[in-house]
Write a protein that binds this DNA or RNA. Sequence first.
DNA 1: GTGGTCTAGACCACG
DNA 2: GTGGTCTAGACCACT
Lengths: 130, 130, 130, 130
Amino acid sequence: MSRASRVFAFRLDPASGVPVYRQLIDQVQAGIASGSLASGDQLPTVRQVAVDLAINPNTVMRAYRELEIRGVIDTEHGTGTFIADRKQPRDSAERARQLEQLATEFAARAGTLGFTVQQLIEKLQEKGRK
Amino acid sequence: MSRASRVFAFRLDPASGVPVYRQLIDQVQAGIASGSLASGDQLPTVRQVAVDLAINPNTVMRAYRELEIRGVIDTEHGTGTFIADRKQPRDSAERARQLEQLATEFAARAGTLGFTVQQLIEKLQEKGRK
Amino acid sequence: MSRASRVFAFRLDPASGVPVYRQLIDQVQAGIASGSLASGDQLPTVRQVAVDLAINPNTVMRAYRELEIRGVIDTEHGTGTFIADRKQPRDSAERARQLEQLATEFAARAGTLGFTVQQLIEKLQEKGRK
Amino acid sequence: MSRASRVFAFRLDPASGVPVYRQLIDQVQAGIASGSLASGDQLPTVRQVAVDLAINPNTVMRAYRELEIRGVIDTEHGTGTFIADRKQPRDSAERARQLEQLATEFAARAGTLGFTVQQLIEKLQEKGRK
DNA sequence: GTGGTCTAGACCACG
DNA sequence: GTGGTCTAGACCACT
């Protein structure tokens, strides 16, 4: 299987209460974190996503635009939308603190919803394999 | 420790994009599913929740109202709000959805901060060992 | 005249070819740079701007949203939109370079359009006084 | 130095939000207004501009076409593109608009970078003295 | 009454 | 064909 044939696909959860554009943003960011999206990869076109998910193109564009403002993607007018080069990380002490905080909050949220940390780790690993 | 002294506490995640009232509803349902809330348990008052979380009482009221409509809680005027007797089916599909959503959200936030999912998993495992 | 009575007003130039939402963004940023907008100042409401300029509220919201993503303004749901606290500047060498570059580009653009730098300085001073 | 050897060069500002074809049109008009372009002067070819600015020839063609429609330039098939004979009224309103727009844009960019308009003015004056 | 999300659909800009 | 801007209008969330 060639890498180029891999297609990034969005999925919506209409029951989640999370706004559609936000789900799209989260999935791109999660794709980058899990390694399924890398710098230079092309995202599906605005219209393609709109058709696939049966949503309005404007909603897709809004998500892509916000990702562009944040520097996560580059859009090239008339060409397509691509994952941007990762900007260099900040100082490492600050980063270690951020990771610690994220993990702590994650564990707390899991507990609140009645899941064990182990269950969540497994779910994360599953996402990484996809 | 008496059961009645157990305090159910809500937590909000402003970064999640999930509407506040929806987070409240989810946490009550999750508490029931996980066993930390059982029939007859009292929920904190609308005012108490509003003060604790620094949100508008109307928002809390709306969440409680929707839970009452669903038959999840009983509101006894002048007394308080309690988990209803009615058996709640442990909606496993709903719980799977919440787990999925939580994992996606944190993978996305890891990506936003420039971490990989693998780094997050390692941090969580490290915390689990402590 | 009390400071609080000062009202920030947008103006559109329909002949400029610059997208409306972009004109709004630029005017907020210019207002901050010129000192006519400061941290905590409230911007006119989305609907008010839409009515004043006879444009669609969505266009205004788009401008405000982009400013919020960039950290220039804070929006408080149900309350209004406010100029955010200035985030601390970066290291001074980098900043001096940026200012130098901006001034150089400014002078070049002025020349291309057939204006003298002096004319532009006067226009900038005029904007600062408003 | 012969007059014909003078080269008219376009400059693009990708940060301005102004459409490319519009920037080209403005610069020709400004060149005429400021006297750096006069009747009979030849403009660079469509291909040359496209290569220099790394833009699509169609974009250049569209700008030239619009200028021709306005009577600002004459396109002589197989020969080149020239500033038209017809007297161009020095449209002072249009030039005032451009000056205003330029000042607003740079004030906005100063604000984005965390500078005040006053700082920008001082830098410009400093450059002017050199 | 404040901002927020989404749809439908038109028209523009760029390659 | 790609992305971009704007309008009109509905319905939701929060104070």
